[in-house]
Design a protein around this nucleic acid. Structure first.
Length: 588
RNA sequence: GGUCCAUUGGAGUAGUGGUUAUCUCGUCUCCCUGUCACGGAGAAGAUCGUCGGUUCAAAUCCGUCAUGGACCGCCA
């Protein structure tokens, strides 16, 4: 029997026609000598009918069917009587009267239901991922992902980008994330590293004159996982020669527009808004701001100075910040206890406390309300933009702690109060990043983006004098509070690249040893270039409206970096280790 | 490396020291010709994650470990 259509596509155009369908039994409703089966495939569900009148043999087979049996059927499409129409089903106006059926395979009772909105642990879902992936919402998520990559290939091909693969077995480089290492059999004691990104290879392709490169590339980083981080993930990676940062951004906007149109049929407005890194930190307390709502951070230094509240006064005297956000209508919705729970939470960002007042018609109320006289109340309300019934939250600390804490609270309260429009896609460019950040761990500056990022032209000389003041020609594209991607103009001149490594604490010798092979390439007429990489997993997650990238990866790792279905990683045979010249030191 | 949370039939859960361990769904048997959350009758299914402690008595209190989840660190 050859399939004539998908279950989910059976509609009135097939009326009175014979169809052959193949699929899984979603549900059996056995009324005795009348049996209904919901048959499911990737396109949806259609109702099958079995009775003595339609076919006695088929009816007997239907009696034995159970959930998730795989069957093929031949039957005639009939319209349902008015009172039997199911408006909740796409195929609800029709049904298939089955006169021939074959069971292609039986199924044990599944550990969870094959339907949307199941309430089971991720662990169980991953262990039976092939069942989990039968669920319509998982199929939709992966279909959206597929549409995104299709749109990317089409758009970039149309724009003369050349798709080139780069190695997965490559060289370990210092800086950046921890590498996944692959031992070499041919060179015992030597290791390949899986790429954290194709960064240097794509730059070399610019040196090779390809001018416009792209790749949907798998990347690997051996760091701990998060909801939006997997140890292997996919980047839409691109690089171009002879374009400015602005030109690259404009071209990326074209790509984003095409993807949004093809994947979701959503039109986005371009050009996409740009804000500087400084502005993002000041206004949103985040380098990846969610701009779908307000509740921006307000500088309260002027309003609360010399008020007699020690915490604020001392922070300001020590060069810190006092900033606040307003929680609209927060007075009634939040108890002291709930606010204190939030205070507890932000301690992980280093905050020592969370000061708050409730705005009442008489002024402020709450534990620190007594420090505010009438004038302070007026100024604070004005600067914060608060009105009666609002809750004002203050954090006084260093710039970083204030930003992390209020940045978190801003999003947390907005989510709880449901003031974020879930149907909005708010893109924003964050530009003009610092070139370096100080690492407490290494007691030196590290690259904020990566060591191949070009400083702003006027900041090049700062590399040798005050590197921490230098800003980069780098840019991140942010969507709904997630870092969707980022890129930069790269260094294409050897002397600047050498200065960069020096600023990062490399000696001339170590830079030469680690990256000499790359810097040599810059000597041979290397074009100015730049590029960008988009996180495909995050992009798919946001378009599929999921809150974890596991939901858009067919076979992801769990939060402990293992894979419950295949039980990877696993131990290997001693013989394998011997071939690699490796010995395992048992620890416990 | 750290903090917090969870772990009870196949799934989801109730259960604050003494219960025949609760309920819902599912599973199995029988009945049922218009169901679509089908309905009705009945049945099976749990050493309450592990090890140890406290107690006359532990699913329940304490500790260990394990597994999972969220987060901090980490993620050029």
């Amino acid at each position: 029997m050859e399939r004539t259509t998908y279950c989910g596509l059976v509609n009135e155009s097939y009326l009175e026609k014979e169809v052959v369908l193949k699929g899984w039994v979603q549900k059996r409703r056995d009324l005795g000598n009348l049996i209904f089966i919901d048959l499911r495939d990737r396109e949806g569900i259609v109702q099958l009918v079995f009775s003595q009148e339609i076919g006695e043999q088929a009816l007997h087979v239907a009696e034995e069917l159970r959930t998730e049996f795989v069957v093929e059927i031949k039957g005639k499409v009939r319209s349902r009587k008015d009172d039997a129409i199911n408006p909740k089903m796409k195929t609800g106006k029709v049904e298939v009267e089955v006169h021939e059926i074959n069971v292609l395979n039986k199924a044990k009772t599944t550990p969870f239901y094959i339907e949307d909105d199941i309430n089971v642990s991720d662990d169980l879902r991953l262990k039976y991922r092939y069942l989990d992936l039968r669920r319509p919402e998982m199929q939709n998520a992966l279909i959206i992902r597929s549409k995104i990559t299709q749109a990317v290939h089409r758009y970039l091909d149309d724009n003369k980008f050349i798709n080139i693969e780069t190695p997965y077995l490559t060289r370990s480089t210092p800086e950046g994330a921890r590498d996944y290492l692959v031992p070499s059999r041919v060179y015992p004691g030597h290791f390949y590293a899986l790429p954290q990104s194709p960064q240097l290879f794509k730059q070399l392709l610019m040196g090779a004159g390809f001018d416009r490169y792209y790749q949907v590339a798998r990347c690997f980083r051996d760091e701990d996982l998060r909801g939006d981080r997997q140890p292997e993930f996919t980047q839409i990676d691109l690089e171009v020669s002879f374009m400015t940062a602005k030109e690259i951004q404009t071209m990326t906007e074209g790509l984003l527009k095409a993807v949004m149109k093809m994947a979701l049929n959503v039109e986005i407005k371009t050009p996409i808004k740009r804000i500087t890194w400084n502005e993002a930190m000041d206004r949103f307390g985040s380098d990846k701001p969610d701009i779908r709502f307000g509740m921006e951070l307000k500088d309260m230094a002027a309003a609360v100075a010399k008020m007699g509240f020690k915490v604020f006064d001392q922070t300001l005297e020590n060069g810190g910040q006092v900033k606040a956000i307003v929680v609209p209508g927060g007075t009634e919705k939040y108890s002291r206890k709930q606010i204190e729970a939030k205070q507890e939470y932000i301690k992980r960002f280093g905050a020592k406390g969370l000061a708050w007042v409730k705005v009442t018609s008489e002024g402020f109320s709450g534990p620190i309300a007594k420090f505010f006289d009438e004038e302070h109340v007026t100024t604070v309300k004005e600067i914060a933009g608060a009105k009666v019934g609002d809750l004002i939250l203050f954090v006084a600390d260093t710039r970083k702690v204030v930003a992390d804490s209020l940045g978190y609270l801003r999003v947390a309260f907005a989510k709880e109060l449901n003031i974020i429009d879930e149907n909005e896609f708010a893109f924003v460019w964050v530009v003009d990043w610092p070139l370096f950040e100080y690492s407490e761990e290494f007691h030196r500056y590290i690259a904020a983006h990566h060591p191949f990022t070009m400083p702003n032209e006027e900041d090049v000389e700062l590399l040798e004098t005050e590197p921490h003041k230098a800003h980069a020609q780098s840019y991140d594209i942010v969507l709904n509070g997630y870092e969707l991607g980022g890129g930069s103009i790269r260094i294409h001149q050897r002397d600047i690249q050498e200065k960069m490594f020096k600023a990062l604490g490399f000696t001339k010798e170590s830079a030469e040893k680690q990256f000499g092979w790359f810097m040599d390439a810059l000597d041979f007429g290397f074009p100015p270039h730049g590029g960008l990489a988009l996180g495909l997993d995050r992009f798919a997650m946001l378009l599929a409206k999921k809150d974890n990238i596991r939901e858009v990866i067919a076979f992801p790792k769990n939060s402990k970096a293992s894979e419950p279905l295949t039980n990877a990683p696993s131990k290997v045979a001693t013989k394998q280790l011997d071939e690699l010249g490796l010995e395992i030191e048992e620890t416990n």
